[in-house]
Simulated scan of single mutants.
Amino acid sequence: MSRKIVCLPGDGIGPEVLEGARTVLEAADKRFGLGLSFENHDFGGIAIDKHGDPFPEGTRAACEGADAVLLGAVGGPQWEGGEVRPEQGLLALRKTLGTFANLRPITLFEGLEHLSPLKEDRAAGIDLLIVRELTGGIYFGKRKEGETHATDECAYSAEEVERVARIAFKAAQGRSGRLTSVDKANVLASSRLWRRVVVRMQAEEFPDVTLDHMLVDAMAMKLIEAPAWFDVILTENMFGDILSDEASVLAGSIGLAPSASLGDGVGIYEPIHGSAPDIAGQGKANPLGMILSAAMMLRHSLDAADAADGIEAAVQAHLASGARTADLGGTAGTGETAEAVAERLGS
């Protein structure tokens, strides 16, 4: 059985890190017999240059027909301020594929504690998952903008909360069984709806999951005070955007952080770092965030948990060996790092 992976290399370091992930996936395919096939398509800034559209129709059709989508990175200074921007392609991609939940695991690998901005004893043991609602809330609400007054509406329906909460509850069941739901229920009506829905779901569908609630301002503080306490964190779009960026630095480098955007259909998998145009084409980028995103793809979209576990173990072993890319204080290159992980996976 062939499983079609659509690859969107994008801009900046995107093509380099995606090529690294493909190297590791090919090793996983050889070891686990996954039947993977790969197609590259234009997306982002490069697609604007070639087609006048960051998400051309050919790319759209390929993504809709894929088993999963791997995305490198988009954007760069040459497209800033333009009428058509690479980031518009991201919104269109998510809308087309109906991805409403963004999963961002934050793991501090053993031996990298000194790279966290926190003291080592506070950073040790960080292993959490943020589940962020991706298509609702203030980013997608009605808005009015004038010279002296502006309004952004934050709106959620019970159905929107239910579908993302269900993903978070199920994730908690597969981990240590704890879910922290983050809101601002003391102030916002949309947050009070959010909390009521989550409480009802826990009682009716997930009584085996321990649920607690935290206001978003307190959560921003607790992520720094006691990050290792958290397991799965569920929150709405804007809060999740802010908290996941805060949490991303705890593991020592944003280059290590993967993500998955999931819904009812095709999933999108990408590292959370940007296109880093200042180092593009130099072979300095850390491919591990992209490689770990590929592992998430195997687990969530291709039902290949053994292969995902294998990739994650190979990454951990690679880091434990002392090999480091520049963002981690070393000199290893992008391709060299990917080849080393692939070799460990195949051994």
Results as ranks from 00 to 15, higher is better:
17 V>Q: 06
21 A>T: 15
28 A>I: 04
32 F>C: 04
33 G>E: 10
37 S>G: 13
38 F>R: 04
46 I>E: 14
47 A>N: 00
47 A>L: 08
53 D>K: 04
62 A>K: 06
66 A>S: 10
68 A>H: 11
68 A>D: 08
73 A>T: 00
76 G>E: 03
77 P>A: 00
79 W>L: 04
79 W>K: 05
79 W>R: 01
90 L>I: 13
101 A>W: 03
122 R>L: 10
124 A>S: 04
129 L>E: 11
129 L>P: 02
130 I>N: 02
135 T>Q: 11
136 G>I: 00
140 F>D: 03
142 K>C: 03
151 T>G: 08
152 D>A: 14
155 A>T: 15
162 E>K: 12
167 I>E: 02
174 G>F: 03
178 R>W: 09
183 D>L: 10
197 V>G: 00
198 V>Y: 14
204 E>Y: 05
205 E>A: 10
207 P>T: 13
208 D>E: 15
212 D>V: 14
213 H>M: 10
216 V>F: 08
222 K>W: 15
227 P>S: 07
228 A>K: 07
229 W>C: 12
233 I>A: 09
239 F>V: 13
239 F>A: 10
252 G>C: 10
252 G>Q: 11
266 V>Q: 03
267 G>D: 02
270 E>Q: 14
271 P>V: 01
271 P>C: 05
291 I>L: 07
292 L>S: 13
304 A>Q: 00
304 A>M: 00
323 A>G: 05
323 A>S: 14
333 G>K: 07
341 V>S: 01
